[in-house]
Simulated scan of single mutants.
Amino acid sequence: MCDLFDTLGPDAPTLLHGWTTRKMAAHLVLRERDPIAAPCLVLPGPPARFAERRTSDMVEHREFGWLVTRLRCGPPLGFFRVPWVRSFPSLNEFFVHHEDVRRANGLGPRADLTPAMQAALWRNVQRGSRYLSRRVRGVGLDIAWQGTGLRHTVRTGQATVELAGSPGELLLYLFGRRSAATVEVSGPAAAVAAIQEGRFGM
């Protein structure tokens, strides 16, 4: 991701409305290095606005190269060095935001993901799918790793929809990047419509 930042520069678009690569880098640095603002990134209302102000301050006062260098160094000692954090929330965060940058700049899905990375993403899809789909009501949901026979029931319902794709594409879909994710959606028409219109993500 840092190599891509270096290639694209600070003003390239991302899939997030209004976010440039500079703001993306600032967001990621703040997440790992600002112990006051970081928890506010996942909270609504005043905490979220506080985190946004801190991010804006970083965008305004820090050079893009400085942000990328800090990001490339990895997190400092503390919470974000905990193995579980690195393998679950941080892997999700960096994978999804890397794709936010790639796909907004005409780069497709990565073809170089190792089997170990695919397996790690599949574990995270299973771990996080119920929470990430929590706003979708009244519909059953299954996810399937296309081409492997691996499936996971997220929630049951009278009508069930299946999302099928590679682990990374499923993760993008569950994080709300529906239009950018290569995922097959199948099931009864009304249930599919509920899924396609539902809100996924954090």
Rank of each mutant, 00 (worst) to 15 (best):
Leu71Ser: 04
Pro109Glu: 05
Leu163Trp: 13
Arg70Ser: 07
Val185Glu: 14
Leu28Met: 03
Phe80Asp: 01
Gly201Asp: 09
Leu107Pro: 01
Ala144Trp: 04
His98Gln: 04
Glu60Val: 11
Ala116Asn: 10
Gly9Arg: 04
Asp11Pro: 02
Thr20Gln: 04
Ser56Arg: 13
Trp145Glu: 04
Glu63Ser: 15
Leu141Asp: 00
Val96Asn: 01
Ala181Met: 06
Met58Asp: 01
Gly147Asp: 01
Pro47Asp: 08
Gly65Val: 07
Ser133Met: 11
Phe50Tyr: 10
Gly147Asn: 08
Val161Lys: 13
Asn124Pro: 01
Leu113Ala: 11
Arg110Glu: 07
Thr160His: 13
Leu170Met: 11
Gly9His: 06
His17Met: 07
Gly106Ala: 10
Thr20Val: 00
Asp34His: 02
Tyr131Met: 10
Gly165Ala: 12
Val96Leu: 02
Ser56Glu: 15
Ala193Gly: 13
Val183Ile: 09
Val59Pro: 06
Leu77Met: 08
Arg103Trp: 00
Ala116Thr: 13
Ala12Ser: 00
Pro83Met: 06
Cys2Phe: 12
Ala51Lys: 03
Thr156Asp: 15
Ala104Asn: 03
Glu197Tyr: 08
Arg130Met: 09
Ile143Glu: 03
His17Pro: 05
Glu197Arg: 15
Pro47Asn: 11
His152Ala: 08
Tyr131Glu: 07
Ala191Arg: 11
Trp145Thr: 03
Gly78Met: 01
Glu63His: 14
Asp57Ser: 08
Arg103Cys: 04
Gly18Ser: 13
Ala189Pro: 05
Ala194Pro: 08
Asn92Pro: 00
Asp100Gly: 03
Ser129Val: 03
Thr69Asn: 08
Pro35Trp: 07
Ala120Gln: 12
Asn124Phe: 00
Val136Met: 13
His97Asn: 07
Arg54Asn: 05
Pro89Met: 10
Met202Gln: 14
Phe95Tyr: 11
Gly18Glu: 07
Ala159Arg: 15
Ala37Lys: 06
Cys2Arg: 12
Gln196Thr: 14
Ala119Gln: 10
Arg110Asp: 11
Leu28Asp: 04
Pro35Met: 09
Asn105Leu: 14
Asp11Asn: 15
Leu30Trp: 03
Lys23Asn: 03
Gly140Cys: 07
Asp57Gln: 10
His27Ser: 02
Arg70His: 07
Ala38Asn: 06
Arg151Ala: 15
Thr14Phe: 00
Asp34Val: 05
Val136Ala: 15
Asp57Thr: 10
Phe80Arg: 05
Thr114Ile: 04
Val42Asn: 09
Leu28Cys: 09
Glu32Leu: 01
Arg155Ser: 14
Asn92Trp: 02
Met58Glu: 04
Arg72Thr: 08
Gly198Lys: 13
Asn92Met: 12
Pro167Leu: 10
His61Phe: 11
Gly18Ala: 06
Trp19Cys: 09
Ala116Val: 14
Ala12Arg: 01
Val192Tyr: 05
Ser166Ala: 07
Ala180Asp: 11
Thr21Ala: 06
Asn92Cys: 08
